[in-house]
Amino acid sequence: MTKLVLKGRPVVDGVAEGEALVTRDTISGFGGIDNKTGEIIEVRHELRGQSFAGKVLVFPGAKGSSGWASHFQTARLNKAAPIAMIFKHTTTKMALGAVIVRAPAVTGLDKDPIEVIKTGDWVRVDGNTGVVEVTPAAERP
């Protein structure tokens, strides 16, 4: 097993693990996601048509309208939210959104998560300690 361990700053408490969905594009709430399905709907987004529901979402951060947390709260209430979040850029939208999604979240990792985590990898996010463990897709149990 070549498990990769990353260390960062805890943002939201809790521990969760699951399949990663990774993007280089920031995500918008209003006009960016379908909060019923967790699908990305923004026209020029590289994940357009894919859903983050039940995934560990790895992304640069939040953009767009100040309703970001509200849209992600709606996704959570529709059971379409990510189960954990790993992001790079801290903004008010991102921080509040992470709190409202109520899923473990970590930022400020010692390696660029968008470079080292691939979609489909198995990722464990510890929001209490800031530790992220990545098992490559090929080696998943």
């Binding site: 100040s66 947390a69 509200s70 008010t92 509040l96 959104g97 709190v99 409202i100």
Partner: peptide
């Protein structure tokens, strides 16, 4: 001011 959300 920062840009707040509905909850904050």
């Amino acid at each position: 001011s920062n840009v707040e959300g509905a909850h904050s």
